[in-house]
Amino acid sequence: MLPKKYATTDNKERVRVEDTGLIKKEYVRKKRKLTYLGMPSGEMRDILAWKDYFEKCTAVEIDDQMRNQLMLNVINSGLNGKISILYGDIEKILIKGSDEFNNKLQFPYDVVFLDCFGTIVYRELQRVKAITSLIEKQKGSDFLLLLTFNIRERKYCDQSIGTVLNKIEKELLGYYLQDDKAKLKINKIMGWYKADKTEEMYRQKIFGSYFIKTMAEERGFKVHVYPPIFYLGFKGSPMIHFAFKLMSGTESPTKEVSDQTIFNIINLNIKEVSNGRVFVRKQQAPTVGM
């Protein structure tokens, strides 16, 4: 057992349990141990929790001290040789495919977990480029993509999210060219998402889900989006956790079409983890019907 100091929040632990179910399913489906790419930090709790399902892991760490601690835990846990550490900024590494010491990412991975500070549009779209690069490099291989972001104030990402919300609205309206009543309803729902008083988690939910889904479909994957999970992390910081299953498509020249439609994505309930319990939030965003 790790010392108390390193104990993460109960909420995060509970989210990890949710992910364990998904990882186990992948392990059973693929009938082999999996490869993992992530940012497990010094305590490497993710790796310790999932080590039975993993054959090889790549851990990315930018901080010297954390890296030292990570290595100590790797050896003390008898995992030396199974984990390689890349040193630096995850986004730069995903874009370049290697760190500044020429340690290379070993694509493809079965599980990728990006536990990031800020939202998807953090740092002038560098994160978007990084995730796009990851999906391109994973082409042809099914994988589970886990993403955790902290929900920052709206001012940091309002413009980008606003653009995507407009895009979603336009796409939805495309289904109801002749139905003014439905159009009005869609305008109303999207208006709700764009409203100042709407909690950021709902906007992040459709933004994150839609972004990954459309981007991965354009790159040859069918995508299944699991209900995002909202929780309060370290020092009460609001977090949103996504899980996507990306399945390699049929090499179609046009984009892949996932089983889940845009309506399914918008209508996904947000789950919440609180006091170590997972439940569907009572309050949800308005749903759209087709």
Binding site: R67, M71, I75, Y87, F101
Partner: peptide
Amino acid sequence: VSIQKPSIFIH
């Protein structure tokens, strides 16, 4: 002994 470029660890 672990080689993790740019470091080497001896535990």
